[in-house]
Design a protein around this nucleic acid. Structure first.
Length: 431
RNA sequence: GGAAGGGUGGCAGAGUGGUCGAAUGCACCGGUCUUGAAAACCGGCAGAGGCGCAAGUCUCUCGUGGGUUCGAAUCCCACCCCUUCCGCCA
C-alpha cells in the first residue's frame, strides 16, 4: 500500500511513476473525486462530533450539579442534530472503505534504479556466472532423465491428485530433500539467518499484509472452514514469515531481522494453462527455501544486494551456471519496488530459467501490516521488508539433474550435496 | 467438545456509565548532578487521521463487529483469541 499522503500531495507524480509498470493506469480522476468528498465529509462529521462531545460533557456537569432542567435542555440540543451526525458518519465510513479498496489495489512505485519497460523483453542482465557445459552426447531434459531412472513420476501424481503434481522416489526424492537441507544449513549457518518453521495455512489478513489479497485471490488455494471464513495454502513462505512482524514495533537495534524458512508452496497457476506443461517447472505444489529480512529503511537496498548474494551462493556452491537480471518496471510483482531474478541454466531447455526472485518491498508491505520499528526520535516508523528465494527447491533439482547428467543416463551428485546423500557420488544409471 | 476465568499504552497492571486516551510501575527520550558512568532528582513519553504556514486544535481507537445512551474501557448481543481444568488426539 502506498502512503495516502503521497497520493494526496503528489497524485500526478505517483501516476507517472506507476505508468512505468507497463502502462499501469492509476485512476487519478476517481481518486481526486473521492478525496474531495472525503475532505468535506470528514470535517463536517468531526465538527458535529466535537459539538456532541462538548454538549455531553456539559450534561455530565449539569447532572453532577443536580440541575436536571439544564441537562434536559442540553439533551434536546444534541438530539437536534444526532440524525444528521449518524447519517454523515455512515457516509464517511462507506467512503473510507472505498478509499481503502482503491489504495489496496494500487501497486508499489518502482525504485529509481529500475529500468523502464513493459515485459520480460526489457529486463536488464546484470551478470553471469559459469559457462553452460557442453555435452558430448545428446542432452535430455529432467523428465527424460528422471523417468528413465524410474524416480520421477508424473503419472501416479495425476492419478493421486491431477496435473501439475509429481511423485519423486528413491535417490531423486532424497536429492530433493538434500537440496533443501543444504540451503537451510548455508543460510542459517553462514549467512546469519534464523531458521523458521511456520504454518502452511494462513488467514486472509496475512495475505493482505504481503499483498496477495485482495487482488490475486485466484492464484491461491483456499481451504473452507466450518464458519464461512477460510484459510489459504501459502503461495510462498514470504507470507507467514513476513507476517511475523505484522502489528509489531521492533526495537531498532534488532534490525535487520533475518529469517530462512523451508516450506511447500501452493499456487493455482490460474492463467498459465498452456505454459510449462511438461515436467516439474511449474507445479501446483513445490518446495522453496525462502529468505526474509526486515530492515531499516536506510539500508534496505544494501540488504537487497546482500540477500541476492546469499541466494547466488547456493548456485555457486552447486556450480550451476546462472545469470542475474534486474526486472523492468513492467515485469515486477505488484508489491515490489525492485526485483532481481536469478536464472539458472537448464540444458534441457537451452535457456536460463528463473530459480529465485529477490525483492525489496520498501514500506509497501509494512504499511499494510503496520510493521514498524522505533526510530532514534523514539517514534514508530515503518520498516522495509525484503525477501528472495534461496532457492526454489524443485527447480534446483531440475537444474542438478540436467546439468549433471551423464551419457549413461546417470546423474552425478554435486560435491556440496554429497554429505546430504550419505556420501553418494552419483545416481546410478538404469541398467 | 464441556466448564471457569481473562483480553487495557513498548511491557506489567489499575480503572465497572460523565473532562478517562486512561492511575501507577518498568522501559525509553531530554535535563540536573558527576572526570565519566551508575544512582538520585526534574521533565517528556500511545497510535492513526483531519484542519492549519505555525503555535495549535479537532476526531477516532481500551480483542473485533453490532447495540443501548446526550455520553461506553465500563452495560447488552455475537464472534475471535488467550489461560486453567476435564474429555479426545499425532
Amino acid at each position: 500500500m502506498l502512503d495516502v499522503q503521497l497520493l494526496r500531495n503528489e497524485l500526478d507524480v505517483v501516476a507517472r511513476r506507476l505508468a512505468a509498470r507497463g502502462g499501469y493506469q492509476l485512476d487519478v480522476e476517481s481518486f481526486r473525486k473521492l478525496e474531495e468528498r472525503r475532505k468535506a465529509l470528514q470535517s463536517d462529521t468531526e465538527s458535529l462530533q466535537a459539538q456532541r462531545n462538548a454538549l455531553s460533557r456539559q450534561i455530565g456537569a449539569a447532572k453532577r450539579d443536580k440541575d436536571q432542567q439544564a441537562a434536559e435542555s442540553l439533551m434536546v440540543q444534541v438530539n437536534a442534530f444526532s440524525d444528521e451526525l449518524k447519517n454523515k458518519q455512515e457516509k464517511l465510513d462507506a467512503l473510507r472503505g472505498e478509499m481503502e479498496d482503491l489504495l489496496l489495489s494500487v501497486p508499489n512505485l518502482p525504485h529509481g534504479s529500475v529500468p523502464a519497460g513493459a515485459s520480460e523483453q526489457d529486463n536488464v542482465e546484470l551478470k553471469r556466472f559459469g559457462e553452460p557445459r557442453s555435452f558430448s552426447f545428446s542432452v535430455r531434459d529432467h523428465v527424460d532423465i528422471g523417468e528413465s531412472l524410474g524416480q520421477l513420476d508424473f503419472e501416479h501424481a495425476v492419478k493421486i491428485t491431477g496435473s501439475r503434481f509429481v511423485v519423486l522416489t528413491g535417490a531423486i526424492a532424497r536429492l530433493h530433500r538434500a537440496i533443501a537441507q543444504f540451503m537451510l544449513d548455508v543460510h542459517s549457518g553462514e549467512h546469519g539467518y534464523t531458521e523458521i518453521y511456520s504454518p502452511y495455512l494462513v488467514n486472509a489478513e496475512s495475505l493482505r499484509g504481503t499483498g496477495q489479497l485482495p487482488k490475486f485471490e485466484e492464484d491461491l488455494f483456499a481451504v473452507p472452514r466450518a464458519d464461512d471464513s477460510r484459510f489459504y495454502l501459502i503461495p510462498t513462505a514470504e507470507v507467514p514469515v513476513t507476517n511475523i512482524v505484522r502489528d509489531e514495533i521492533i526495537p531498532a537495534d534488532r534490525l535487520p531481522l533475518k529469517f530462512v524458512c523451508h516450506t511447500p508452496c501452493f499456487r493455482s497457476e490460474a492463467g498459465s494453462y498452456g505454459k510449462d506443461t511438461r515436467g516439474m517447472i511449474r507445479q501446483h505444489q513445490f518446495d522453496k527455501v525462502e529468505l526474509v529480512q526486515i530492515a531499516h529503511p536506510e539500508n534496505s537496498y544494501q540488504v537487497l544486494e546482500e540477500l541476492t548474494g546469499h541466494a547466488e551462493t547456493i548456485l555457486r556452491r552447486l556450480d550451476l551456471p546462472y545469470r542475474v537480471v534486474t526486472l523492468c518496471a513492467g515485469d515486477m510483482g505488484f508489491s515490489a519496488a525492485k526485483t532481481y531474478d536469478i536464472e539458472v541454466w537448464l540444458p534441457g531447455q537451452e535457456a536460463y530459467r528463473e530459480i529465485s526472485s529477490c525483492s525489496n518491498f520498501e514500506s509497501f508491505q509494512a504499511r499494510r501490516m503496520r510493521a514498524r520499528f522505533r526510530n532514534d526520535k523514539g517514534k514508530p516508523q515503518l520498516v522495509h521488508t525484503l525477501n528472495g528465494s534461496g532457492l526454489a527447491v524443485g527447480r534446483t533439482l531440475i537444474a542438478v539433474l540436467e546439468n549433471y547428467q551423464r551419457a549413461d543416463g546417470g546423474v552425478d551428485i554435486p560435491g556440496a550435496l554429497q554429505p546430504y546423500m550419505g556420501g553418494l557420488k552419483a545416481i546410478a544409471s538404469p541398467r
